[in-house]
Amino acid sequence: MTDTQTSPPVTVTLKSGPTGAGSIDDFELFYARRALDRFRTRLGRQGLLDLLAADIEEGNAFLRESARASDGNFKAGTTVLAAQGLTSGEFLAWMDGAFAGDDERVLLAAHPEHYAMGTDAIGARVVENIGPHVCSFYMGGWGTDAMAWAADAAELLPESEFPRKMSSNLFLEDGTVVGRALIQFGDTPDGFTANLTVYFPVTCPDEVLDHHLRHYAVEFRNWIIAAAAAQA
């Protein structure tokens, strides 16, 4: 008779030593963020873009082919976050200042897979992971009535509850629309709710969409925390 019993998972518990609060996972996250910030700073913006040039070419080719095969059809997913201790107006004012400022570090720090965020001759450029792919894309409109889709989006929430809304196309340097974003904010008695919807071509694997919903959760959580710290 074959023994099919599996071994219990190995666990490690911190009993004593460090005087600061936190778990081993917290310590590791702190050191990972510190190391990442060091590499970003040493390489600089152009150094990072040069390092990732081949990855970006491959990632953009994936998005371009997905858009071509999907013929303008998109699928959506939404991450919902609840924040306490900060209003949506305070958060969005901080976001406006962060994106308008010269310090890219605060934007990059929100996610390990942020590589560049800023404005160039085409518009607001973002270099980050879309699923496993490193991609370089722009946010904003493209062409006449480019944002008309947002008014008819199934994910659009009532204006009375979510009065602060922003919509955007995601497009490549050659103008190919490879996605969309619709983010909506509504205040609550102790903070606000953020509904963060992303749209990708329907031929994109579902895991690409799911990973971006996780991406949203990480980056917006960290931006909200940074905005609250700036209020203190």
Rank of each mutant, 00 (worst) to 15 (best):
P18C: 05
A32N: 06
T19N: 12
A93H: 04
T87M: 06
W223Q: 02
G101D: 01
T144Q: 14
L48G: 14
G191E: 07
A229R: 10
E57M: 01
G179L: 01
L29W: 06
L92S: 00
I225T: 11
F27H: 00
D71F: 08
R64E: 10
V177G: 14
G17H: 02
S70T: 07
A154H: 05
A116P: 02
D174L: 07
A121Q: 05
D174P: 03
L107N: 07
A61Q: 11
T176C: 11
Q184H: 09
V218W: 01
D55N: 11
V208P: 00
L92Y: 05
A217D: 10
S16R: 06
W149S: 03
T79P: 03
M1Q: 12
Q231A: 04
M139C: 09
E65Q: 15
G77H: 09
F200C: 04
P132Y: 02
G186D: 06
Q46E: 06
N195Q: 14
D71T: 08
V218I: 14
A116K: 07
G118H: 07
S70W: 08
A98P: 00
H215F: 13
L107A: 02
C135Q: 13
T41R: 10
E58P: 00
G17C: 01
E159D: 13
E173L: 04
M147H: 02
R105K: 00
A93R: 05
